[in-house]
Structures are given as structure tokens and as C-alpha cells.
């Protein structure tokens, strides 16, 4: 049975496109079969916002990546991204920043941050989403999407990583200890 899946692709192309080039890219996207996506740009960043009907999230994303590859359009990452600040958490959960502050400061099991940007703590969205679901902030399917997106982004960055061939070896080495 088909369902609608929403996701965003951040495209590999990073040079700023003038308006004509942007229109040409839109045509290429449409001709690649992605008339279920909207092309947008902000500064140098190009994004395709999809609403794709498919049998699963996984199938929807893979089919979209394949469509774009035929048009030689590369996907750098899939959003919404996994690295989130407190502000981003408040936006995604539609709660106040103070509410997020309380979650992170109180001893209520909110996962610890795993990064920092200047003075801001950063969390992994796929790590905190099960906690948010238990608090009624997210649905089970949101948690599933978070994990699937994180897995896709791992795969995309592995493919783009010059050390890709040694990644399997590295995983074995870590597990062997």
C-alpha cells in the first residue's frame, strides 16, 4: 500500500546559481521525474523538498536518489539533519526554548549532548527522538524517520568519503577488540 513520505535533499552542487541556471536545474529535476519535489535555494545551498508516494520511506528515498542520478544531480545529504541545537529542537517539537532548556537541565533522562558549536550544545536528533516520543512530543513514525535519515546520511557520506573502502575494515577492527 502506498503512503506519502516527506523528506528534503540537500544537493551536492554548491556554486551559487544565477536565475537562469536555477530555472534550467528546475527543468532537469522535472524531466528526471521529480515533479513531486520543489526546488529551492538559500544562498549557495540547493534543496529539493519531496512528497513522494511509495511503499516505504526507504523505497521513496532510494527512488528519488536514482531519479536524480539519471539527471546527474547529486545528493549530498538528507534532511531534516541529525545535528540539532536547543533552538532547532524547540522548532521541531514546536515548544518554547525554555521548555527544551528544562528538558536538558533536569535529571529526567534527556540524552546528553554529543557536540558543541561555540557556546551551543548539540544533540543527535535520532538519539533524542525516542525520549521525545515517550514524552508525547513525537509519533513513532517520526522516530523511525529520524533513524532512517541518519542511516541514509551515513551511507551518503561513506560513499563520498575517500576512505570508504577501509570503513568495513575499520568496523571489523573496532568490533574485534
Amino acid at each position: 500500500m502506498n503512503k506519502n513520505y516527506s523528506f528534503e535533499f540537500n544537493l551536492s552542487q554548491s556554486a551559487h546559481l544565477d536565475d537562469d541556471a536555477f530555472d534550467e536545474l528546475a527543468d532537469a529535476v522535472h524531466e528526471a521525474g521529480c515533479d513531486d519535489a520543489m526546488l529551492s535555494s538559500q544562498g549557495n545551498a540547493l534543496t529539493l523538498s519531496f512528497d513522494r508516494e511509495s511503499t516505504s520511506f526507504y523505497a521513496a528515498v532510494v527512488s528519488a536518489i536514482h531519479d536524480l542520478r539519471r539527471a546527474q544531480i547529486g545528493v549530498r545529504s538528507i534532511g531534516p539533519g541529525d545535528v540539532v541545537s536547543a533552538i532547532e529542537i524547540s522548532k521541531r517539537c514546536d515548544v518554547s526554548r525554555e521548555a527544551v532548556r528544562q528538558w536538558t537541565k533536569q535529571d529526567i533522562g534527556f540524552p546528553p549532548p554529543n557536540g558543541r558549536a561555540g557556546k551551543s550544545d548539540l544533540w543527535s536528533w535520532s538519539e533524542i527522538s525516542p525520549w521525545l516520543m515517550d514524552r508525547g512530543q513525537l509519533k513513532a513514525e517520526d522516530v523511525e524517520s529520524a533513524h532512517e535519515i541518519a542511516a541514509f546520511n551515513l551511507a551518503l557520506s561513506a560513499i563520498g568519503n575517500p576512505k570508504y573502502k577501509s570503513i568495513e575494515k575499520t568496523i571489523r577492527a573496532i568490533k574485534a577488540a
Binding site: N4, H16, D19, F22, D23, A26, H30, D35, D36, A37, M38, L39, S40, S41, Q42, G43, N44, S49, D51
Partner: peptide, 20 residues
């Protein structure tokens, strides 16, 4: 830098495109 978005004449789903 400003934002820019492309609007289709005939999207696959007009309702979805409007939402996007």
C-alpha cells in the same frame, strides 16, 4: 542571501506542492 523557490505549472500533486 535571499531565498528562492521554483513553482511548477503542473506538479504531481498541487495540494502537496502548495504545502511545500
Amino acid at each position: 542571501e535571499g531565498c528562492r523557490l521554483s513553482v511548477w505549472s503542473t506538479p504531481k500533486s498541487p495540494v502537496n506542492h502548495a504545502r511545500q
